[in-house]
């Protein structure tokens, strides 16, 4: 309950910061590492699969750490 009252604004700020850094990561990886996608495509792993898996794991770790921080507070 106290989370929604007191900490939601800071969570929202951190969350949007996370979304922005993910978008930047997506942009720079796609432009700097685009050639390496052929390695995974030749193994049958598509770009979409790579990105969806990576982003889900990354966001899950982020949310888990937020939860742990909130619990330990």
């Amino acid at each position: 309950m106290s989370f929604w009252k007191n900490d939601f604004r800071s969570f929202a700020g951190i969350f949007w910061l996370k979304i922005i850094t993910l978008a930047l990561t997506y942009y720079f990886i796609n432009s700097d590492k685009s050639k390496e996608f052929y390695y995974y495509q030749n193994l049958g792993v598509s770009k979409i699969t790579l990105w969806v898996t990576t982003l889900i794991i990354d966001l899950s770790i982020f949310l888990f750490l937020i939860f742990v921080a909130q619990t330990l507070k």
């Binding site: 590492k33 050639k35 390496e36 052929y38 390695y39 495509q41 030749n42 049958g44 598509s46």
Partner: peptide
């Protein structure tokens, strides 16, 4: 075709291995 490596593999003209 690119989703099925058993069918077709492609060597691009640039280095592609991480």
């Amino acid at each position: 075709t690119f989703q099925i490596p058993e069918l077709l593999m492609y060597l691009p003209q640039f280095n592609f291995i991480p």
